[in-house]
């Protein structure tokens, strides 16, 4: 993209991000109370670690079981060839976030296997930026690995999803199944419980 064009388009993008976040509530943790999807967890309360591998364009595993109240450390690694996201939220939240990610693509922040961090983190002078640093999500280039510590409270109908445009629709999401009756057990639910894959 033409650099001049890119800069000129920035204010519009920031504006859209700001309004999008308020209206649609896609970024769970900070803006509107953790109860909807849970809340950032403390390292001291972590009961277990779930390793999640991101590939093109799917996760391993494709569904995860947690206990209500459990705090889990997700160790997420991008072993694909493209940028991917691991984001904990409801289907509606993911859908709203996808519009924002679409804008990141259209404005050249997100390009195939590359994230323009400088542009993404640019301070627009009004406290807004396109930073992608919410505690319920990580956005990574190929080869990167990061952690999320998350406490699952009374949330239901949660999914982990990649909201890079098209990836969710291609099938890059999985269910987080929250169990409130049985005591916590170790480990993620394996492929046995995943949706049919062809």
């Amino acid at each position: 993209m033409n650099p001049t064009l890119k800069i000129a388009a920035l204010p519009a993008l920031v504006l859209a991000f700001a309004s999008g976040a308020h209206a649609a509530g896609s970024h769970g943790g900070g803006h509107h109370g953790g109860n909807v999807i849970g809340e950032p967890g403390n390292a001291g309360n972590v009961s277990r670690t779930v390793e999640v591998t991101m590939r093109d364009n799917y996760y391993e595993p494709e569904s995860i079981h947690v206990q209500r109240g459990e705090t889990i450390r997700f160790k997420v690694t991008n072993e694909g060839g493209l940028v991917h996201e691991f984001n904990i939220g409801t289907a509606d939240m993911h859908e709203a976030h996808q519009d924002e990610m679409q804008m990141m693509v259209e404005h050249g922040v997100l390009k195939g296997d590359h994230i323009d961090h400088e542009m993404m983190n640019m301070d627009m002078g009004n406290g807004h930026s396109m930073k992608h640093d919410d505690p319920n999500s990580v956005l990574m280039e190929p080869g990167e690995s990061r952690e999320i510590i998350w406490k699952f409270t009374n949330a239901t109908d949660l999914e982990f999803a990649c909201n890079v445009p098209g990836h969710y629709q291609a099938g890059m999401y999985g269910d987080i199944k929250i169990d409130s009756t049985v005591a916590a057990k170790d480990g993620a639910e394996g492929e046995s419980d995943s949706e049919s894959v062809q």
Binding site: R55, D56, N57, Y58, A170, G171, E195, S196, V197, Q198
Partner: peptide
């Protein structure tokens, strides 16, 4: 191998 998308029927 696995395709970069999934579906239930085609």
């Amino acid at each position: 191998g696995r395709e970069p998308f999934r579906y239930d029927r085609e």
